[in-house]
Design a protein around this nucleic acid. Structure first.
Length: 817
DNA sequence: CGCGAGGATATTTTT
DNA sequence: TATCCTCGCG
């Protein structure tokens, strides 16, 4: 009995095909991690491949960690010398060793989004860019996508020489890079781009790694961007130099990171780049019930750009997908909290950790949290603000950074006056200038010179008197560190000497305790790090610290690359709350997807976007969400919800409508209440606000639309404006209230959003009594009566098959035959 | 220089 | 709504 016997035929083929390019299309829950780990084992056990010749790349540290654990279990000895790491840590590790070849020094620091913003602000100031007209945010976004596409500042400028705004962005990009370089810092995207640059410029270095990584595996391949693709392509080498043992694993249906530059074509076109690729599809799902799978398949089936796949399972049918609709988001949250308790009572085998609540935006977590606290349900919110982005943590890290590397000007400036030392902007400005004219020395160095040297007249003695203690304190930290003080004690000493605790208590009474707790957390993280460092020896403590790196810089580099999800501890018995994005790659017996409303999920941006892909990406996100569920899936939505200070009224998400009715335990109803878009014959109800939470239209009157993409029944594609999904747009128009055709999403009061443009008004129908018409659902029929009702035209139709129906013109979407 | 008030502004999603 | 930024005063 070998370990490979547990694999199914397809998995086995994927495992045993070790040579040449391989594409594994792995549907959700099809055991792809198993395939990768077994493949690694197979390479070592059966093919005699050395572990150090194997590279496995993932996207998150958590995935990397999990993979390593599983490989360890499978093969034991030797697993530790396999490179299993994320793209970013891999790049850091390579750059720590070779970046001097392209003009940086190997002790570079990594800037997070916050630092990027600060730096870009400086770049704009230098270039006299008015950040009111051209926001740093915008520039940074452009720079980031340029880097994803491996575009240098020069290339950017050349590509946009005739567009004034773009040209300015190009200049800002260039200046920003200059500042990064001056600070000996790389931002996130640089890690990838600089590695590619290194490999392109130094063929010998590339050769070196090509020879080392004879077998490469890439997980979540659908999420790779151009830079990552190029990196992999370079590492994999060519047929001639004996490489190309590249195995990529992914699922185009789970590509949800386009906004971050992910290029779905990387997976769709893999066979074009590698025509001799061996392709395996894993379609057997080991996770979910048939019902859940059917729902997922139905939803994703509405997307066009995909490799066809049909998941199936041997698991039982399972219970239907639960659908619950509420009047407010508060009720929705209460329901979820109560439902979890109810299920736990009914099925004592369930633990809190078996539940997850997923949502589109982080902001939605708040209400849920409130209710969970109220019901004393243990929970954990994953994501939101990253631990390492919290102010107090960044302050502490800045002290550590300055102690470690004085060239990080940003860090120095961050803490120079934190806690307050009476050193202000004017002084910072003078010191910066002094640093610039003294041969572009670092900020801290400039501070030192101004304190140590003879009175230069640049700073007054009183200011020097404020700076000197700071400089001396930092020096003290440095000395202590080189005398062998542990990181833990260093951090404690920093807190003590700076008086940070008192500073927190003085300035913010409210959450000082929370912040102090966070600092304690940081201390324990640093302790853990040191313990691991002691165990493994400095080189292997972290995937990112190359040789030559001190323990401190190793810790700092690690920290920069940690995502919130990486810290998730599945041993805690807590309900997990997280975004759909964070949930990718996870599974739970009980899953809730909350906030299923058009305008929220799919977000209004994608509903209104001209980019057809945007909606498909949202749908993939829904697919990811559904397929997280093992046994039970509950979908919830609210008719009204408070969003950034205003109440919004949104209809049920179109994605819910795409799930076949027979899979749901309740029918999606038309939203009720004041802003209902009305559908029932007895329209009086539609304006009652005290409707019971759940009430569904009569049979046959659901507002279920046809699947997107198939058009609206007989409507020929493209017949309507833009050929896009115009059907649902009608939903936003309040029926026939002549001077009030406002969208229901976006602002409920004033402020007409762009949604309004191009919206079909509830116009007079182009048919009359006696005309033959066709309805999406009921088929053909004859109009027998028409009456101008209070809100809209009330049309009575005698359908050939479905009998007589009375409906409103704006929603019936009757087509004259 | 520090602090507070008030206004603007953002809101998908995150390695 | 919550945070962030700017501006003006003490």
């Amino acid at each position: 009995m070998s370990i490979y016997d547990s694999l199914n035929t397809e998995q086995r083929r994927a495992v045993e095909h070790t040579e040449g390019p391989v594409l594994i299309l792995a549907g959700a829950g099809s055991g792809k991690t198993r395939v990768i780990t077994h493949r690694i084992a197979y390479l070592m056990d059966e093919c005699g491949v050395n572990p150090w010749n194997i590279l496995a790349i993932t996207f998150t540290n958590k995935a990397a960690q999990e993979m390593r654990e599983r490989v360890d279990k499978l093969i034991g000895f030797g697993a530790e010398s396999i490179w299993i790491s994320t793209f970013h840590s891999m790049c850091v590790r390579i750059l720590r060793r070779h970046i001097q070849e392209i003009g940086y020094s190997t002790d570079f620091t990594i800037y997070d989004t916050d630092d990027q913003k600060t730096l870009m602000k400086e770049a704009c100031r230098n270039l006299r860019i008015n950040t009111k007209e051209l926001k740093e945010r915008t520039i940074l976004a452009a720079v980031s996508s340029a880097k994803d596409e491996l575009m240098t500042p020069r290339m950017y400028q050349e590509a946009h020489q005739y567009d004034f705004l773009q040209k300015r962005i190009g200049e800002a990009y260039e200046e920003y890079q200059r500042l990064l370089h001056k600070n000996n810092a790389l931002d996130f995207d640089d890690l990838l781009m600089k590695t590619v640059e290194l490999f392109t410029m130094r063929e010998d270095v590339l050769r070196n790694y090509q020879e080392r990584f004879r077998y490469i595996m890439v997980d979540e391949y659908q999420d790779t961007n151009t830079a990552q693709f190029e990196l992999v392509r370079l590492l994999a080498g060519t047929k001639k130099n004996g490489g190309r043992n590249l195995c990529v694993v992914g699922d185009d249906d789970q590509s949800i990171y386009k906004f971050r530059g992910a290029n779905i074509r990387n997976i769709l076109d893999f066979e074009k780049v590698y025509p001799d690729a061996f392709v395996v599809k894993l379609e057997q799902n080991y996770r979910s019930t048939q019902t859940v799978l059917d729902a997922a398949n139905a939803v994703i089936g509405n997307n066009h750009n995909r490799k066809s796949k049909a998941l199936w399972t041997r698991k039982k049918e399972g219970s239907r997908v639960h659908l619950r609709q509420f009047n407010t988001a508060m009720e929705e949250a209460s329901f979820i909290a109560e439902d979890i308790e109810k299920k736990k009572r009914q099925q004592p085998a369930l633990n809190y950790r078996d539940f997850a609540v997923l949502y589109r935006t982080n902001a939605q977590a708040r209400l849920l949290e409130e209710r969970f606290i109220m019901g004393s349900i243990p929970y954990n919110v994953v994501g939101g603000t990253n631990f390492y982005e919290r102010r107090e943590i960044k302050d502490m890290l800045a002290y550590l950074k300055v102690t470690d590397n004085g060239r990080d000007d940003l860090a120095v400036r961050r803490i120079l006056n934190v806690p307050r030392r009476g050193i202000g902007a004017a002084t910072v400005e003078k010191v910066s200038h002094y640093a610039a004219v003294s041969g572009d020395i670092g900020f801290f160095e400039a501070l030192e010179k101004l304190c140590d040297g003879p009175a230069s007249g640049i700073l007054s003695t009183s200011v020097i008197g404020k700076i000197r203690p700071f400089v001396e304190m930092i020096r003290g930290f440095r000395d202590a560190l080189s005398d062998g003080l542990s990181l833990e004690d260093l951090l404690k000493r920093i807190i003590r000497e700076t008086g940070y605790e008192e500073y927190l208590r003085d300035t913010e009474e409210e959450d000082a305790d929370d912040r102090l707790a966070n600092i304690d957390e940081l201390i324990s993280k640093i302790v853990t790090y040191e313990e691991e460092a002691a165990e493994l020896g400095t080189d292997d403590i972290s995937p990112v610290s190359g040789e030559g790196a001190t323990a401190l810089s190793g810790f700092l580099a690690d920290v920069a690359l940690v995502a919130d999800i990486d810290d998730m501890d599945e041993n805690q018995d807590r309900v997990l709350l997280m975004t759909l994005h964070s949930a990718k790659g996870l599974e739970f017996p009980q899953v809730y997807i909350a906030g299923l409303e058009d305008g929220l999920f799919p977000g209004y941006l994608s509903i209104n976007s001209d980019d057809h892909d945007a909606m498909e990406e949202e749908r993939r996100l829904m697919y990811v969400g559904i397929t997280r569920a093992m046994d039970d899936l509950t979908l919830t939505c609210a008719r009204s919800r408070m969003l950034r200070g205003e109440v919004q009224y949104n209809p049920v998400s179109r994605f819910v409508m795409e799930i076949p009715e027979e899979l749901l335990d309740e029918r999606p109803g038309a939203p009720r209440g004041r802003f209902s878009f009305g559908y029932d014959e007895d329209d009086e109800d539609d304006f009652r606000t005290d409707m019971p939470a759940r009430r569904f239209p009569e049979r046959g009157f659901s507002s279920r639309p046809a699947p997107a993409g198939t058009g609206t029944g007989t409507q020929s594609p493209g017949a309507r404006a833009g050929g896009r999904d115009t059907r649902l747009k009608a939903v936003y128009v309040k029926p026939h209230t002549p001077d009030e055709k406002k969208p229901f999403i976006g602002r409920a009061s004033a402020g007409l959003s762009s949604l309004q443009k191009g919206m079909p008004a509830a116009a007079e129908p182009d048919y009359g009594v006696g005309d033959r018409v066709r309805h999406v659902k009921f088929g053909e029929g004859t109009v027998t009566a028409m009456e101008k009702g209070p809100k809209d035209y009330k049309v009575t139709v005698l359908f050939d098959d479905a009998g007589q129906k009375i409906m409103y013109a704006a929603f019936a979407r009757l087509e004259k035959q």
